[in-house]
Simulated scan of single mutants.
Amino acid sequence: MGTIIFDLDGTLIDSAPDIHATLNRALGPLGVPELSLERVRGFIGRGAPVLVRRACDALDVPPDARDEVLERFLARYENAVELTQPYDQAFEALDAVRARGHRLGLCTNKPIAATQYVLEHFDLARRLDAVIGGDSLAVKKPDPAPLRMAMSALGAEHCLYVGDSETDCETAENAGMPFALFTRGYRKTAPEGLPNRAAFDDWSDFPAIAETIISE
């Protein structure tokens, strides 16, 4: 039996369309140009405050207006799931590794309220034994503390961490854990530029990958 902990946005689900729409609505009262989906994808990964800061920097939003943008974003984002979709075969892969006796957890920089809403909406909560969100601790990934907190909740000293981005790769490195890279997410670096035990673009391949890494 092993322990596998997953990132959420860009790993199990493609939430960028909802993040994009919510961010533009939060910025709307300022009268600034709308950001493209691809540009917003590049802002995702280190939590909502960094996402909003990057957007505000890109649009030269005055410092005194930024807290209100973040507040508007968080208020709308908590239940923003209309445009979000699971990656093909991702949930089936979770069921497959869980059926083999592995303990599963989630470690995401998404705020915990929004995370829990997504998990309930997609019936993911029952598949996970521990969930750590972006505001569960005072620090976020790539600090290793959230991942270690998820491991502790699962009673594990070792885990396979699965994510899609530079942040996830760095988190695994900082925690000294093996990393598997899902290559269809929100990374900006080529897969070969991110240290990993395995890289995959099809979730149907993941159960076999997990067995290989866990058995090492």
Rank of each mutant, 00 (worst) to 15 (best):
S136V: 10
L74D: 13
F43Q: 10
M1C: 12
G133T: 05
L160A: 08
F206V: 06
G2L: 13
A208G: 10
E68N: 12
N196I: 05
A21E: 15
T183C: 13
L27M: 07
D18E: 01
C159K: 09
T84C: 15
A21G: 12
V139Q: 03
A198R: 09
A150R: 15
M1P: 15
W203T: 02
A130H: 03
F182S: 12
P86N: 07
H158Y: 14
A99Y: 02
L51S: 08
A210C: 05
F73A: 03
A210H: 00
S15L: 03
A175V: 03
A175D: 01
T167M: 15
V40I: 00
P195T: 09
H158C: 14
E166T: 13
L128K: 11
R197F: 02
D164A: 13
V97M: 11
C159V: 13
D164T: 09
R187I: 04
A172L: 09
A153F: 12
L119D: 07
G10W: 10
P29C: 09
D143K: 07
A114K: 00
M149Y: 13
F179V: 00
S36A: 14
G101K: 11
S204F: 05
D135Q: 02
V50Y: 02
G176I: 11
S204I: 05
L94S: 13
L128G: 10
D14M: 09
T189L: 13
A55L: 01
T212C: 08
L128S: 08
F179E: 00
D129F: 02
A114E: 01
L181C: 09
E170K: 15
L137K: 00
F73Y: 13
S152L: 14
A16T: 01
N79I: 00
L37R: 09
G47V: 04
S136F: 12
A190N: 01
I112T: 14
S165N: 15
D135P: 03
V131C: 04
C107S: 01
E120H: 08
D201P: 04
Y161P: 07
A198H: 08
V162W: 09
R66D: 03
N24Q: 11
G163T: 04
L35S: 10
L59H: 02
P195Q: 11
Y87A: 09
P111F: 00
I132H: 08
P86W: 05
V81N: 04
L51K: 10
L137Y: 00
H158L: 14
P49I: 00
V139D: 03
D95C: 10
N79D: 06
A16G: 03
G155H: 01
R197K: 10
P191V: 10
A114S: 12
G2Y: 11
L94F: 12
E192G: 08
I44N: 02
A172V: 06
